[in-house]
Design a protein around this nucleic acid. Sequence first.
DNA 1: ATTATCTATAGATCTATAGATAATGC
DNA 2: ATTATCTATAGATCTATAGATAATGC
Lengths: 238, 238
Amino acid sequence: MTSPTRKPQDGVPALSVAEKNAPPRRRDARLNRDRLIISARALIAQHGVDASLEEIARQAEVGVATLYRNFTTRDDLVRNLYDLALAELHAVRGEIETAPTPWDALVVYTERVAEWLVADPSLPPILRRMAQLDPSARPAAEFDGFIASLVARAKKDGTLRRDVDAVDLAVLVTMVGSLGSLGDGFAGQWRRQLSIVLDGLRAADAPRRPRLPGRPLNLKDYQATVHGLTRRAARAAR
Amino acid sequence: MTSPTRKPQDGVPALSVAEKNAPPRRRDARLNRDRLIISARALIAQHGVDASLEEIARQAEVGVATLYRNFTTRDDLVRNLYDLALAELHAVRGEIETAPTPWDALVVYTERVAEWLVADPSLPPILRRMAQLDPSARPAAEFDGFIASLVARAKKDGTLRRDVDAVDLAVLVTMVGSLGSLGDGFAGQWRRQLSIVLDGLRAADAPRRPRLPGRPLNLKDYQATVHGLTRRAARAAR
DNA sequence: ATTATCTATAGATCTATAGATAATGC
DNA sequence: ATTATCTATAGATCTATAGATAATGC
């Protein structure tokens, strides 16, 4: 997904930055923009959407004016991060459509969306802010009709319990996705938790459920997680 | 739980403020402290633990110096909010112990803890910060052994699936509790979502599950929720 | 008399921009 | 030549405190 003509900086996860509307054209400009986006994600994940713009620029090793040139306002920055994330999400649609059964499609849907949320802890604050900026723009809005029909079909074929609806699914996925904000140790658990949720969604007389993926987080792991968090926070505060 | 000699201000939910270690003694001082705590909760819920101390004081209609007199440092404030919340949580223990079966006890545990989290959207940021300040202090630490034994008993009597453990439960509850940060409309949904999670936790051959509480959030409700959020945000920004 | 609050203020940090300087690509 | 970055800066807001003023309770 990364353009082959552009080499991502070392150590930086390849950004699938959509070069959509009026992207900066100079090479250094694009690089700086990517750096800004990376540090914006990191700092928003840590401090929420109110994160200091100056610090975002500082961490990107770029002057503040460069940030303002790329993103005229804070909300503009947020909106851009939202659009970038959304582009990734939409790639999922095809995968859902090719699932063999309605139930499998729902599993893919919940898994991919949860994964998307967990992978980027800056998303929850960004989504909240976007909901305020533009209530009509819901992240999965494009899926709505599609999911609703999946839900109906999965109920009909007896795999999905009948007393839930598509919005329940969306809320549940959001819930699981929130694990990304609780530190890496918890984030690694999301498949287990989602699996439990899916079992709760299965019709009571549906076929036997699969084994939970992964292993439970024991107290030792837990401590390691939290300590890891602390160390990271200390490093960041330096 | 409110001291009968102290009249809470009108419109303000009775604060069960523990007057523990060296509480301010003068009447006006206690009132101001309560006001500070209320606006700290509101602003931390909105802006995270980095919320402006000056604004907290302003919203409490009190000078900044009064805030600093009560809470010498930001972390001191956070720690106090944590302790206050924790005190409420511990009141739950008795209720868990009187549940008739291990499964019922687990239901009460998850319900009460989730309710506690949902009721106060300032808690997630506060808990995260506390985990950094003091990794040993986990909110439900006091329950650990107790819950572990409940889990063991519920597995033995065939109501709880065997491939989960106590930490899974804690993670799931945290997840459900995160719904409190998504606006009032979502927050009202937590019982439904928890009920689905509990069904996922039930052993596959356990007795039939109950009907989901409440009704699903339809798209109209959803819109209303988000618009409500927007209006609130606008008011707050004024 | 004691205890607490408030006003005022120093110094730091933030947002936002103007004007001077540097890098790119034709 | 064009496009982008950087430095510097104005004005606002923040944290934290010192010193003057006001409210409580014995």
